[in-house]
Every structure is written in C-alpha cells, then in structure tokens.
Design a protein around this nucleic acid. Structure first.
Ligand SMILES: NC(=O)c1ccc[n+]([C@@H]2O[C@H](COP(=O)([O-])OP(=O)(O)OC[C@H]3O[C@@H](n4cnc5c(N)ncnc54)[C@H](O)[C@@H]3O)[C@@H](O)[C@H]2O)c1
Ligand SMILES: NC(=O)c1ccc[n+]([C@@H]2O[C@H](COP(=O)([O-])OP(=O)(O)OC[C@H]3O[C@@H](n4cnc5c(N)ncnc54)[C@H](O)[C@@H]3O)[C@@H](O)[C@H]2O)c1
Lengths: 211, 211
DNA sequence: TTTTAATTGTGAAATTAATCACAACTATGA
DNA sequence: TCATAGTTGTGATTAATTTCACAATTAAAA
C-alpha cells in the first residue's frame, strides 16, 4: 500500500503510440518509407529521439533509405500485441461517460467497451450501442468478458467505493476521471486523468510564454 | 517551427496541483496542519518527494509540527496566482465538448469557459449555461474577453484548420482532444490529451503487472 | 565500379527527476 | 530546564531521459 499512482509508462514506450498514429497517417497519404526526421517532425520530437526510441526496441531501419513504414508498424504492434481486443467497462454514464462510450476510436484501436454501468435506474433504459446496466450486473459481465480494465466516470464522492468493489471483482487497471487520488493495493494500475490540472497547466504555461 | 508539443510542465510544478487538491480535502475534513507523509500518502508520492518539491518552491514548514495547511495553500496559490479567472473557449460541441462545457469544476478552479463554438447551425440554438456560437463570432469573443486559451474538441480532420484560425485571432495555448499532432509556430503552447493512448497505456501496464 | 552524400545506430555527455541519508530543529514531557 | 523523539530541509547519490556527435552504412550518381 505504498505506491499509488505508479506504473507510469516509460516515455519511450508511450511515444510508440504517437509514432504508430503518425505512421498510419503517412501510410494513408501513400508513403511507403520514411526517415527519422519526417516522423520526428510529425510526432513533435527530434529525429534523434525517434532513432533512439527505435534503438531501444531493437527496431532497425536502412541507412540512407530510412524505415519501411509497414515494418515499423509491425514492430510496434509486436510490442503491444498481447493486449489487442481487450474488454473494458465504463462505470458512471453521466456527461463524460456518455462521451466516452460513443467514442469510436477506442474500437478502431482494438479496445472494446463491452458494457457501461450506472447507479441511476432511469439511465439504464438508454443505450448507446452498448447497454447501460445496473451495478448488480458487474460481477456477471466482468467474469463473462474477462474484463481487467475499467474506466471510472462517477462523481468524486463515489469513486473510491466503486474502485474497491471493482478490485474485489477482479479489475486490475483503472483509467480514472474523478479528481481524487485512489487508494489501492500494490499491483493495481491506476492512471488518473485530471482535466482541471491539464487545463490549468496550459493556462500556466501560456502565461509564462506570453510573459 | 521545431518543437511542437513542448512546454511540458515540470513534474514538481504539476504535482503542486495535486497537493493543492489534497490540501483542500484535508482542510474540509477539519485538519489544520499536516506532515509531509500525510500529504504524500494522499497524493500518491513519497514524503521526501513532497518535502523536496516544497523546498524547490521555497515553501517552509515547521520541524516537528509539520506544515500549516493554510500557509501551504497560500504559497501554492502564489505560484499560480497570476492566472486566476482566465477566460477559455471551447471549439466543437459534440460529445466531448458538451461534457466539458458542463463540467463545473473548471469554474471552481477559477477557469472560466466564456463561450463555445460549433460549425453546425443546428447546435447553435442550444445552450448549456454558456452560448454555442458560430465561428464568425470567434474574433469578437476572443477580443472582448481577452481569451488566450482554447479547448479543441472538433474532429481530427478540422483540428489543424481551427487551430490555424485561432492562432491568427490571438490564441496562445491549446488543450487539444483531437488525436492529431498540431503544427504550430514557436511559443504557442499545445497540450494534447489522447484518451486512446491513455487507455492503451493502462491496458499495457495492467497486463505487465498481472503477468 | 567507385565515389559521394545522406541517413542510421548508438555510445557519451548533459539534463532532469527521484531517492537517500542525515544534520538541524523544535514541540513535548520529564 | 533538559533530554528526547519526531520532523523538516537539503546536499549527495542514483536513475531516467534527452541531446550530442560521429562512425558505419548504403543508395544512387558518376
Ligand atoms: N464532465 C466532464 O467533462 C468531466 C471532465 C473531467 C472529469 N470529470 C469527472 O468525471 C466524473 C463524472 O463527471 P460527469 O460530469 O460525467 O458527472 P455526472 O454527474 O454527469 O455523471 C455521473 C454519473 O455517475 C452516476 N453514478 C453516481 N454514483 C454512482 C455509483 N456509485 N455507481 C455508478 N454510477 C454512479 C450518476 O448516476 C451519473 O450518471 C466526475 O468525477 C467528474 O469530476 C468530468
Ligand atoms: N467522444 C469522446 O469521448 C472523445 C474522447 C477523446 C477525444 N475525442 C476527440 O474529440 C474530438 C471531438 O469528438 P466528439 O466525439 O465530440 O465528436 P463529435 O462528432 O460528437 O463532435 C464534433 C463537433 O465538432 C463540430 N465541428 C466539426 N467541424 C467543425 C469546425 N470546423 N469548427 C467548429 N466545429 C466543428 C461538429 O459540428 C460537432 O458538433 C475528436 O477529435 C475526437 O477524436 C473525443
């Protein structure tokens, strides 16, 4: 019970996501091969950084001829391969939950939202492609779909309770939108998204840059 | 035109946001003073980290008696003081835009969403406390409220166009939800939130931890 | 076939961040 | 008043990340 929000992805690993996104874009535009500086410019990092990252993951290019995009994509998929088509649930179908459940890009990236949950019975009748279920169904769904990851979109007040319950039911990882630091046992992954902090960072830095 | 998504907040600065949040919580629970390990536990970092961070910002405590919460809050506000009550706009009032515009916590944190914008005329009739305006009104609102920061919640395809237009109109900082790396001149602050990447990170790490 | 110019791959150096370790301080109780 | 135990404050150390710099490679031109 010491580390709470640890298990932060290494910077280089996280950048692979960005590279993949850029590479898909390049491919769509008809490119076949790219150089580290092309990818770097698109991804917002230096060319050296790109090469260094690939070096860490033993991804090889061709001197003078750059990298074959398909090879890069294959190599990146290899790093993340075992996590494709994972099932995810969302708890809390208020404003942010509703937005997330309709976000098609999760599916494109092979992350499958299998169900959502809300305590409010009036919401349970509605559906956005996937059903909105009462909390009593959590156990069943988690077992049936072998769900390991949940998105927390309930009010701050309820977040810790819901997380405790979900851990009991076998959930191991959380993407948490409630602005609270969750208390969890070791070896539970918690990743907090605090949009107030993010917006405030932007304001802070904007004022610094503007002087 | 070299660095794109730079101006990342220093880690210690960003943690101040978390500390503030925790301190407000402690205060609400009736506490008056705290020790570095209390705050560390609540914030999910070590006690040494807390003390080191305060040390960097010259925030002093009292040996043996810890820190006075009010003093800490005052000191943290001092770091961020000049950015209170900043005006912000949102562009794109689809799923995520609607969720954000209704998020009351921005206001609690003294960040004021003054207006939102959408290209779709049928959305412009609706309102969620603040008006949804056509893009023609951007110039007027930005000038009138001295807006420097915008939240981008338009489809990927439109994001770069909108950002170009906003930069022309004087916007200096962006919180961008569209999963594209924006091309901007130097000294424009861009902070990307890529929720697919975040969810995928959680899945990746969860699988690593579970083995 | 040889030369050339462009690009990769990666140690080394520099920077940034986190942890350690302990001296200095101070509230409290003897 | 003095001793003590519990905390802070921070320099030193270690770890992570980025940048630098350049040798090795190679596609393409001569
Ligand atoms: N709206 C936003 O843009 C936004 C942005 C960032 C973070 N957040 C955070 O996300 C969370 C949800 O925000 P929101 O704006 O969607 O709030 P909301 O009030 O619109 O939605 C909360 C939903 O959770 C449900 N709920 C409440 N208790 C529950 C429980 N114990 N189990 C299951 N469901 C429960 C409610 O019925 C409601 O549908 C909050 O913690 C908020 O701080 C919201
Ligand atoms: N829905 C989510 O949960 C979610 C999560 C993360 C990121 N995003 C990203 O946020 C963006 C918006 O997503 P969404 O789900 O809200 O999409 P959406 O289609 O629901 O909403 C997009 C809105 O932008 C408006 N729009 C389109 N072009 C515009 C323009 N040029 N100027 C002004 N307004 C314009 C549309 O009329 C629409 O109202 C996308 O880039 C998406 O990838 C969405």
């Amino acid at each position: 019970m010491k580390q709470i929000t640890k298990y932060v992805l290494r910077h280089d690993t996280k950048r692979l996501f960005t590279y993949r996104q850029c590479l898909i874009g390049f491919k769509r535009k008809g490119f076949d091969r790219i150089f580290s500086y092309n990818l770097g410019e698109e991804a917002g990092v230096t060319a050296e950084q790109v090469r260094k990252d690939f070096s860490v993951f033993k991804i090889k290019g061709n001197k003078k001829a750059g990298y074959k995009i398909d090879d890069l994509l294959t190599a990146i998929e290899e790093v993340f391969k075992y996590q494709l088509n994972q099932h995810v649930i969302i708890v809390g179908m208020g404003n942010i939950g509703k937005a997330l459940v309709q976000y098609k890009r999760f599916m494109l990236r092979k992350m499958i939202i299998v169900a959502s949950f809300d305590i409010d019975p009036t919401k349970q009748s509605k559906r956005w492609g996937i059903p909105i279920l009462p909390l009593e169904m959590l156990d069943d769904i988690i077992k049936r779909f072998h769900v390991k990851v949940a998105i927390i979109a309930v009010p701050e007040m309820s977040a810790q309770d819901i997380v405790n319950k979900l851990i009991d039911l076998g959930i191991k990882g959380f993407l948490n939108f409630a602005p609270v630091i969750l208390k969890t046992p070791e070896n539970i992954v918690v990743h907090n998204i605090n949009l107030c902090d993010e917006l405030e960072s932007v304001i802070y830095y904007t004022q610094k840059v503007v002087e």
